[in-house]
């Protein structure tokens, strides 16, 4: 247990340093945060327009959609505020930039992922929590939503790192990783019930976007222990798998002999 506590302290400390270093560019930081919130609000506006015309979309009302947005924004916010490097893991691998982390006495998987925070994503988190407050008021459900966002962010990060780790095995997987990330994002922004059954199956497995927004929203609407256990189980399994793939790949890591190309 004490190792877990140490790891947690390490994560928190790294997060603090990351955020402080972002804050060095205070104006830029604030602008990014505010504009990200604005960005999210504009999407809500879009849905508001849609719901002026339609009552529901595949059984989903305006409030449900807004909740969906709140959860996916919050999840992305937490994920990339804490694990900001997950977005560029494959280029780190290809360019041989893992050397630095390999020289440190820390868990490489964790250390790499948490070594960067994206300033804009804090805006996403703020928006997500703000929306939950707007929907539920000061209710325990807001706390529950935040817990779900955390669990979902673990699923998101483990899925992303698995795909990025393909770079260890097949050379450059940056493009594949980019396509995967964009697919995850796109699918997590819409209610899953608009898709056909085969696509839904895909969204629970290969592109697990269902767990980013749809599952937590369902849990908030109607809590069920079965679904919650599945949700947690997927997160634990995801992290386990992600670490396995990463460390299997690390054995084939070729270090930094690649000169960064001039584009």
């Amino acid at each position: 247990m004490s190792t877990a506590a140490k790891q947690l302290r390490f994560v928190v400390e790294q997060l603090r340093v990351n955020i402080l270093s972002n804050m060095e560019y205070r104006i830029s930081f604030l602008v990014q945060m505010v504009f990200m919130v604005l960005n999210d609000v504009m999407l809500l506006f879009f849905w508001w327009v849609i719901f002026q015309r339609f009552d529901n979309i595949a059984g989903w009302g305006q409030k449900d959609i807004f909740l969906l947005y709140a959860l996916s924004a919050g999840t992305y916010g937490i994920a990339y505020t804490i694990f900001g490097n997950a977005l560029r893991l494959s280029s780190l691998i290809v360019e041989g930039q893992l050397d630095y982390y390999l020289a440190l006495p820390k868990d490489v998987w964790l250390n790499v992922l948490i070594s960067k925070s994206l300033a804009s994503t804090i805006g996403d988190f703020v928006f997500g929590v703000g929306m939950c407050l707007a929907i539920f008021g000061f209710s325990y459900k807001v706390l529950l939503a935040i817990v779900f966002m955390m669990v979902a962010s673990l699923i998101l990060i483990s899925a992303a790192t698995i795909v990025h780790s393909l770079s260890f095995f097949m050379g450059n997987a940056e493009q594949i990783a980019a396509v995967f990330s964009e697919s995850m994002l796109s699918f997590s922004l819409y209610p899953i019930s608009v898709f056909s059954l085969s696509v839904r199956a895909l969204l629970y497995t290969a592109i697990p976007a269902a767990f980013i927004s749809f599952v937590p929203v369902s849990l908030l609407q109607e809590f069920s222990f079965g679904l919650f256990s599945l949700f947690l189980g997927v997160a634990v399994f995801g992290i386990w798998l992600s670490r396995r793939v990463f460390y299997a790949g690390l054995k084939r890591y070729e270090s930094g002999n690649l000169v960064a190309p001039r584009m």
Binding site: I27, V31, Q32, F35, N39, M42, L43, Q52
Partner: peptide, 27 residues
């Protein structure tokens, strides 16, 4: 310092006011 945020907003403006998903006739 950073024009990135302007482009996030711009893409959302296109999304809505540009009529990416919905023909503006239904607005």
């Amino acid at each position: 310092e950073d024009t990135g945020p302007f482009f996030w907003i711009y893409s959302k403006v296109l999304f809505t006011l540009g009529g990416l998903f919905v023909p503006i006739d239904i607005y």
